[in-house]
Structures are given as C-alpha cells and as structure tokens.
C-alpha cells in the first residue's frame, strides 16, 4: 500500500505553546480516515498546516511522494490536495452552477481567461449539471447561493470539491451547522465520492464518523493519542480521559 498522502512529525508551536506536536499519518488511495478530538485539540491548526495556510515549525507534508512543505496553498490545491470548509465559504451572489463552472474551468486551466465565455464550454456545463444532479442540487442550480438552504450549501461545498477531482480530500466538519434531519443528505453525498479518492474527515458528529470512516485518529492537546478502528476508539482509556467522558459512550 503506497501512501498517496502522508504527514511526518508535523509540529507547530505558537511561542511556547505546542499546538500540534509530532503528528504523523499516512493514507492510501481510497482510504476513509477520520480525525477527531475535543475542542482545542489542534484540529484547525492541523488543517491549516496541511493545506499550507501556515508554516510548520517542523515536519513534512507529502502528496503522492512529492514533498509539499515548501509548496504554497494554491500549489497544493493544483497538485490535488483539496479541502472543504467548516463554515461554508461560497460566493453569495453566484449560483451553484457558476461555482461548479469556476472549479471546472480551473481544473481545465482556463479559469482566468479574458477572451472566453464563462458558459462557452458545453462539456463543462454538462459535467457541472451531472455533479449537481448526483448531489440533488439540480433544482437550485441557477439560484443565487444566498437564497438556498444551508444544507444545500454544504452539499455544494462537496460538489465543488468533486469538480476539482482531487487525489486527497480534506473534509472539515462537513456536517457542521446542518440540522440533524439533513445529515443523511450529507452522508449520502459522502458515499458518492469517487472510491479511489483518499478522504480525511475532521468531524464532531460521532455517528457520522463511525459510519463513514474505516480508521480513526484521535487528537488531544496537539498530539495523536489513538489510531485504530472506529469500533475500538470508545474503549480506549486515553480517549475517554481526553473527552472527560463526553463522548465515551458515543457509538454504542
């Protein structure tokens, strides 16, 4: 199993505070991994380190065997490391279709052309429509994002990521803020992600984690305290301690 994505001894300190300490993990193509941890465990810092928004104090990130540590955030996206956002970051006046076309045009290397029509390419329009249909967004495809439901906006975040056709997808709390009645929609969308894609999900919703992930990593106080099967995580003594019991009975 060759790693499509790996992180080695990634560390970040702010002053004397070790926010992330010696985090290592590696993922194979098609893997479904979840990263969980109580508030303040350093999950957001980890995402920022991996995506290149902040520089690590030490350690390395690599993608498909290539060292990414010195590559810019945009460069990492172009090489196939794509993320979604914990709080939706969408363009409120654009439609879902327009979001898709932006992502697809960028994948084709044509997103910043001046002498071109935004909707000029029928193949891309079809692909956009296909992805939106897969996620059940056809109805709202041509309405400004500001007018569509939050759950649908979350689905659109996933749709954009799919259009980018990444090698590794980082899902930052895909179900955050979604009413529990709508989480099945998100779950179904996640099931439709391409099987060969490596997905790293950061999530609070334990039910979602246990159904989605084949492997779980628990982060507490900036360190990995558990790596293993979802079924074992609730039994682990260290994990129970870290969560002070709050999630200890989850997943039963």
């Amino acid at each position: 199993m060759s790693a499509v994505f790996s992180v080695e001894r990634l560390s970040k300190s702010f002053g004397g505070l070790k926010v992330n300490h010696d985090i290592s993990l590696s993922m194979a193509a098609g893997e479904r991994l979840a990263l969980i941890g109580p508030n303040g465990a350093g999950k957001t810092t980890f995402v920022n380190l991996v995506t290149g928004r902040i520089r690590p104090s030490r350690g390395a990130v690599s993608l498909g065997g290539e060292d990414m540590t010195a590559v810019s955030a945009v460069g990492r996206v172009r090489r196939g490391l794509v993320r979604t956002f914990q709080v939706t970051r969408l363009f409120s006046e654009m439609t879902p279709e327009e979001h898709m076309l932006l992502a697809l045009l960028q994948r084709a290397g044509r997103a910043t052309r001046i002498l071109a029509r935004f909707r000029g390419d029928a193949t891309l329009r079809d692909e956009a429509a296909d992805i939106l249909a897969t996620l059940g967004l056809t109805e709202v495809a041509r309405r400004p994002v500001a007018e569509i439901a939050y759950g649908q906006q979350r689905l659109l975040e996933i749709a954009i990521a799919m259009a980018q056709r990444p090698k590794v997808l980082l899902l930052d709390e895909p179900a955050a803020g979604v009413p529990s009645s709508d989480t099945p929609l998100i779950e179904r969308a996640l099931e439709r992600l391409p099987p060969e894609l490596a997905v790293l999900m950061i999530e609070h919703d334990m039910d979602l984690v246990f159904r989605f992930a084949k492997r779980v990593i628990v982060l507490a106080a900036g360190e990995v305290i558990f790596q293993g099967l979802p079924g074992e995580v609730a039994q682990d003594e260290k994990v129970r301690e870290a969560y002070l019991g709050s999630y200890a009975h989850a997943g039963r």
Partner: peptide, 21 residues
C-alpha cells in the same frame, strides 16, 4: 468572462478562490 467571475470571487472571498487553486 471566466476572468471577470474570478475577480468577483476574489472580492467576496479570496480564501475560497485560493482553495479552488
């Protein structure tokens, strides 16, 4: 044009635009 749409995107959320690569 695609360029113009990217500019509008940058106006609203540069981080989102960079996440598109």
């Amino acid at each position: 044009s695609p360029f113009g749409m990217v500019c509008r995107g940058l106006k609203e959320d540069p981080l989102r635009v960079s996440a598109l690569g």
